[in-house]
Simulated assay, not measured.
Amino acid sequence: MREAMFYDKLEGNRVRCRLCRFHCLIGPGQRGHCRVRENRGGVLLSLVYGRAIAEHVDPIEKKPLFHVLPGSRSYSIATVGCNFRCLHCQNYTISQPEEGSVEFSGNLVQPETVIQRALAQGCRSISYTYTEPTIFFEYAYETAKLAKAAGLKNVFVTNGYITNEALAVIAPYLDAANIDLKGFTESFYREVVGASLAEVLDCIREYKRLGIWLELTTLVIPHRNDSLEELRNIAEFIAGELGPGTPWHVTQFYPTYRLQEEGRTPLATLRAARQIGLEAGLRYVYEGNVPGEGGESSYCPSCQELLVKRNGYLIEKNLLDHGRCAHCGFAVDGLWE
């Protein structure tokens, strides 16, 4: 266990957590909304420091990050726990643990070991993913510092609910993030996610202000967030506030966890979402979870020539020339070699 960062000690041995935007008030012996930060005698502890529940070598495209070192491998780690309650979470077995199991979860893997394993596997980055990296902040922070010193990039795959204070501390070590913008109404966030859209939007703006490379993902769920109006609002937010060079991934939903009543997202809906994004001025819009359908490849915004041909997570052609279109020389947005 490790004493948590970002909390205030209050009267009666209560504490106020300042790590995420729920700002939990936690009494003695209680845990925060994330289930992995516990108040013991007025001291807030992280119960998951160094307790990796998942370790995998992934293609960076799986995050998904299409504009960060394409074709490279990323050493991906997670602990149990999450501060959201998404009804459709595909990793619910580790994101929503039983409270009594948290401090015994996973395997003890120290930050130094993560770096050693990543380098040994030829990885170019560390991804903090699968669950919500904010809730294992101390572990991610210590690992990220070592990764940066070793020449590795650091990636958050996140729901976008970290406080500005905590984000500012890890930002010097954080190169890129894929943030889930899960919908664009407060009702969707309240009913399906258990959080606030306004807070997510503020957090996304802060990532952008700090200069962290951003790609956004929206899982398009039938009858929940798939109206053309909502998709248009998302696209216009990205183009207007983050810039037209910000990639947007619109991905296919399939029934899982507590959201079993809806079917898979029709391919036509994803195609419509992609067209909406392009019409809003976005340069790069991708269709996800539908490998082989053609919506995963990158094209030059200037001359429309193929830049990167993808099939699922596999790159079949990479025609980028040091981050530029080999045909017309257009400087493609992203983090390249």
Rank of each mutant, 00 (worst) to 15 (best):
F6G: 08
D8M: 15
G27S: 08
G27Y: 07
G27D: 05
Q30W: 07
G41S: 02
K63E: 03
L65G: 00
H67E: 00
H67Q: 02
L69P: 02
P70N: 03
S72L: 02
S74I: 11
G81D: 00
C89T: 14
I94K: 11
E99H: 13
G106K: 11
V109F: 03
Q110L: 15
T113W: 01
R124A: 01
S125Q: 04
I126D: 06
Y130M: 12
T131I: 06
F137R: 15
F137W: 12
E142Y: 15
A147M: 07
K148G: 00
K148S: 06
A150M: 10
L152S: 04
N154S: 13
V157P: 02
V169I: 11
Y173S: 05
L174F: 05
F188Q: 05
A195H: 11
L197P: 07
D202F: 06
I204A: 04
R209M: 07
I212Q: 00
T218A: 01
A235S: 09
F237D: 06
I238M: 01
L242C: 14
G245V: 13
T246W: 01
H249T: 10
T251P: 03
F253K: 12
Y257L: 14
A268L: 10
L282N: 02
E293V: 15
G294C: 04
S297T: 08
P301D: 01
C303S: 07
L307S: 04
H322M: 02
A326N: 11
C328S: 12
G334T: 11
W336T: 00
E337L: 02
